[in-house]
């Protein structure tokens, strides 16, 4: 029995990595997915994979930092499927890898625009429809970064921690309308992105990429990277009936790298 049958789910950043894994799982659980990201090519690949396994996907190239673009996304989802039940705020940007004093204002603002303002605009655009239906599930992808200090990444750490404050408050504003809001904080997740982060870190700290990778896994309880599918599983759980009484939470999916 699919756990998200006939639910409409918007997934941002759905053209690659964790966002793609989430979109695939949601579709496999019966959701009608609306895939958003800036680049159309990645979205087409994700939609192709979903269609190949019999799922429903609609792609809407979107710049989530642009309110008009976000309104167009929400409008398309509504006119196509009639409701918006699930929003996965997954789009993110790793920002610069530099000491604070070397981060430019433009780099700072760019990082916050995608990671935080984008989630705000998306949430603002879908909430009226969710409140009308008295049902909604919002899951935002945070990070263990910020919970766990990570030198050279202040813009990213600040933006991802901001999502937690945003979500706790949102949960209390929207709870009486049957809308839940939660954050998933992935630990270092296997894929090209974490490998790029390790290379950046290696360059910034004059160590090898392997040493950078070990600095992420060694302090965890399970001593390994997690997988995109782990986050997708939790998204499905929180969006399903099983997650109906969980809200305002931030979940660490990090192999035990953080516990707070």
């Amino acid at each position: 029995m699919p756990r998200l049958k006939d639910k409409t789910a918007i997934v941002t950043g759905a053209g690659q990595g964790i966002g793609r894994a989430i979109a695939l799982r949601m579709a496999a659980e019966g959701a009608r997915t609306v895939l958003a990201a800036r680049g159309e090519a990645g979205l087409r690949e994700t939609a192709g994979e979903i269609a190949a396994s019999g799922g429903a996907a609609r792609i809407v190239p979107t710049d989530i930092t642009d309110e008009a673009s976000v309104r167009n996304l929400a409008g398309t989802a509504l006119s196509e499927y009639g409701s918006i039940d699930i929003l996965i705020n997954n789009a993110g940007n790793i920002g610069p890898t530099k000491l604070i004093e070397d981060v430019s204002l433009a780099e700072w603002e760019d990082c916050l625009a995608v990671n935080m303002t984008g989630a705000f605009l998306m949430t603002k655009a879908v909430l009226p429809a969710m409140k009308r239906n008295r049902f909604g599930r919002i899951v935002s992808l945070g990070s263990v970064t910020g919970k766990r200090p990570l030198p050279y990444r202040t813009p990213y750490a600040a933006a991802k921690m901001a999502l937690i404050g945003f979500t706790r408050t949102l949960a209390f504003e929207a709870g009486e309308y049957g809308v839940t809001a939660n954050v998933i904080c992935p630990g270092p997740t296997e894929g090209p992105r974490v490998r790029r982060i390790c290379e950046n870190m290696a360059a910034a700290e004059n160590i090898t990429a392997e040493e950078a990778a070990a600095s992420f896994t060694a302090p965890s309880a399970l001593k390994r990277f997690v997988l995109p599918e782990d986050h997708a599983s939790l998204c499905v759980y929180l969006a399903s009936e099983a997650g109906s009484r969980i809200t305002g939470q931030d979940f660490n999916v990090s192999g035990g790298l953080v516990w707070y």
Binding site: T180, L222, D230, Y237, G248, G255, W259
Partner: peptide, 19 residues
């Protein structure tokens, strides 16, 4: 299998009473 990479956590199932 879905929960394989979560450990050392305390998870609130409280309807949002505790966060």
């Amino acid at each position: 299998e879905e929960g394989r990479h979560m450990t050392a956590q305390d998870i609130n199932v409280t309807g949002g009473l505790c966060w």
